[in-house]
């Protein structure tokens, strides 16, 4: 990771380098003194603050996908509901790290709620007694408001979300991310490096154009050293509500997630079918698990949740 600031002079050795502040290129740089004092190469103090803040959170899971619109937010909300439904004693938090397109407030049906600030930090919005949510959507005045920010500002927001939200005791913190492998992802991984990240769940759809980007995301996880808990394939099959016949809307021309997982040697957690009612529940912010407890998607989901719980708990007992 390069540590050369945006506005650095040419040939800047990077703020984390041993030569910081001492190289010939540093002469005349307004920040030379800061670099030379060694302050810049110390780890970001926020990392320790975040570690302390999240010390009561047992499992921290990133939900990733290189591709947009594959259902990261939907899967996150379903997992949130699924984990919270296990027992009223299991506390689940969801952090929406998608700064430019926050979808969680709508999907979880808590649009228009307010975040309150108290002595112990920002209190998240509670969807149910044991499911809480934090999103930039709560901080915008109107749904038309666009957050037109470059990377550093987004990073600052994520840092604040991680260090200042008072989650209380949590069993699971699910972090929903935007598509790609850029600022938000690097920051989340970096800020959580000391707090202990349980791993990442990667969401994909069956077509090659999505898998192409998802392979990049898996590569990213390997590069930054994040454990992969597994892959969830969304929108796998479509069951016609009229004639019950199954068809592939997004054809898996290259074998879908199954083939990719065996190629890259990562576990496939399960496949979620495409259900128009699920899309409607998301738009209306209803809990799909309670609305349609017997739908094939819900059954598949329970299976995925169980696998995640087992993996996370195995890690804890180790």
């Amino acid at each position: 990771m390069s540590t050369v600031p945006d506005n650095a002079p040419q040939h800047c050795p990077g703020t984390q380098s041993e030569d910081a502040g001492k190289a010939s290129a540093c002469a005349g740089c307004p920040n030379q003194n800061i670099c030379a004092s060694g302050d810049a190469s110390r780890p970001d103090p926020a990392i320790d603050i975040i570690k302390a803040r999240l010390s009561n959170v047992k499992h921290k899971i990133l939900i990733l996908s290189g591709k947009g619109g594959v259902g990261k937010s939907t899967v996150t909300s379903l997992l949130g509901h699924g984990l919270a439904a296990k027992s009223p004693d299991v506390n689940v938090g969801i952090l929406d790290a998608d700064i430019c397109g926050p979808s969680q407030p709508r999907v979880l049906g808590v649009r228009g709620e307010q975040v309150h600030n108290s002595g112990s930090g920002w209190s998240p919005v509670y969807v149910t007694d044991n499911l809480s949510l934090m999103s930039i959507g709560f901080l915008l005045q109107s749904p038309d408001d666009a957050v037109i920010w470059r990377g550093p500002k987004k990073n600052g927001m994520i840092k604040q979300f991680l260090s200042e939200v008072d989650w209380g005791d949590l069993d699971y913190l699910l972090i929903d991310t935007p598509p790609g492998t850029s600022d938000e992802h690097l920051s989340a991984v970096q800020y959580l490096s000391q707090a202990g990240l349980s791993g990442a769940i990667v969401v994909t759809t069956p077509q090659e154009v999505a898998l192409l980007d998802v392979r990049k995301e898996i590569h990213f996880c390997q590069k930054v050293g994040v454990r992969l808990l597994g892959v969830v394939e969304n929108m796998s099959l479509f069951v016609c509500p009229n004639c019950q016949s199954r068809s592939e809307i997004f054809p898996a021309t290259t074998g879908g997630a199954q083939q990719m997982c065996s190629e890259l040697n990562v576990p496939l957690l399960g496949k979620l079918p495409l259900d128009p009612l699920l899309a409607r529940c998301c738009d209306q912010g209803k809990d799909f698990l309670q609305e349609l407890p017997n739908s094939p998607a819900v059954l598949a989901l329970h299976d995925i949740v169980t696998k995640i719980v087992t993996t996370c708990e195995k890690e804890n007992s180790r």
Binding site: G69, S73, C100, G101, S103, R106, V107, P143, D144, D145, A146, V147, I148, A279, C282, D283
Partner: peptide, 21 residues
């Protein structure tokens, strides 16, 4: 855009972006 509300919501933000720029 796609027809669902979840997508429309983000596209509204993009409209604001176009207007601002």
């Amino acid at each position: 855009t796609t027809p669902q509300e979840v997508a429309i919501e983000d596209v509204r933000k993009e409209i604001t972006f176009c207007k601002k720029t």
